[in-house]
């Protein structure tokens, strides 16, 4: 496919999904400045390497992969724990839900976060997530089940409170 065409398509995809890219980036780093850096870097990489996309239908998946890798690189380079607040086990159960249920995602590994965010927040199918991660669909399923179990432990059902 001609580079200028695919580049334009990538650009269109970026312009229609940058808010979602930001949310995913924010899920990893949990602060605005870092998430903005990750988005800008991801956009740059995506446009610059647009010619590497072989099929138009792969653009979105490929874009997720770039955001994920950029975020993970960022975390590795900055070598600091990003806003991981410990859970106060003695707190009231509805406490997290009032201030930030998303905080619960911090019990997950980076890979588990990616799977949960893409599956539940961005509504990707298991095989699409597998493509983003470069894993097979069964592995993704396993990660998803494990993640949900971990989340269940921290997010107690409200009716049980």
């Amino acid at each position: 496919m001609r580079t200028d065409i695919i580049q334009k398509k990538v650009e269109e995809t970026v312009l229609s999904s940058y808010e979602a890219m930001y949310r995913l980036a924010y899920t990893y780093v949990r602060n605005e400045a870092d998430a903005l850096d990750i988005v800008q870097e991801s956009v740059y990489k995506a446009i610059k390497n647009a010619s590497g996309v072989k099929k138009e239908t792969h653009i979105k998946t490929w874009l997720w992969r770039i955001v994920m890798n950029t975020a993970l690189d960022f975390i590795r380079k900055n070598k600091r724990e990003i806003a991981v607040e410990s859970f106060d086990e003695t707190g009231k159960e509805d406490c997290y839900q009032d201030f930030d249920t998303l905080q619960a995602l911090q019990v997950l590994t980076q890979q588990e976060k990616t799977v949960v965010a893409l599956r539940f927040f961005e509504d990707l199918k298991l095989n699409e997530i597998a493509a983003v991660l470069g894993e097979n669909a069964n592995t993704v399923k396993t990660i998803l089940y494990r993640s949900l179990k971990k989340l269940k432990a921290v997010l107690k059902p409200t009716e049980g409170a």
Partner: peptide, 28 residues
Amino acid sequence: EENVTKLKEEYENIKIPASLRQRVEAGI
């Protein structure tokens, strides 16, 4: 289900900074 819904809601409510568009354009 309720937790998933709640999580998703909060995810969607992650505040989009005003400068995001600008940063995207800078990357492009």
